[in-house]
Amino acid sequence: MAETTVASKTVKFIISRQDTPESKPYTQEFELPYRPNMNVISGLMEIQRNPTTADGVKTSPVCWESNCLEEVCGACSMVINGKPRQACSALIDQLEQPVRLEPMRTFPVVRDLVINRERMFNALKKVKAWIPIDGTYDLGPGPRMAESKRQWAYELSKCMTCGVCLESCPNVNDRNSFIGPAAISQVRLFNAHPTGEMNKHERLDALMTDGGIEGCGNSQNCVRSCPKGIPLTTSIAAMNKDTTTHLFKKWLGM
């Protein structure tokens, strides 16, 4: 008896689709047989094997991106039941049905659920989110980092540039050049590093240009949406303090 109920159980998906970057989005429904421990990715794989809508119409398979399948790469970020998150860690058993999938429209949609997150990498380049150690000779070992500092800095290093914080931010849109919370938090990470600290001012200068840290409007959606639990609003406030100090020091010629 129990077996038959399991066998007849299905999972319903309502997926927002888009054939080209310019074309109009439309939705399609899919109904798949339920399997224990399914996640959104395995559902999408099932649709790929048998691309037939709930009405029985043959269609093109739904496109999506995924890579690590353990919520560390950020590639499969999409809007699931209204909230941006990773599809690989979205378990069907924990989701309300029908499961609604949409691309994160803050970014340009390439096709179906595939988006282009290039702006995030441009933001990292803009704020110089790296530590320059290349030189013409061996610079020797850098200064040590205090363990107490390493512990909180490690939390910031968990950022996987997934774009969920940008998707949830009301100030990241077409009318605003705001680079988003992720890159600001990376400035805090690299400025906390004993070697990275040597180029601190360059990153702060970058945050003080158009579209920089001033774009934050304190809606604080980012910190509540971050799948890695990164204290983004603390990072933003800390960088507000550092840019403010930097501004006055520059004015006073210190």
Binding site: C216, N218, T233, T234, I236, A237, A238, M239, N240, K241, D242, T243, T244, T245
Partner: peptide, 8 residues
């Protein structure tokens, strides 16, 4: 927040 007074 914007002036970096309340951080945490």
């Amino acid at each position: 927040i914007s002036w970096g007074i309340t951080i945490g």
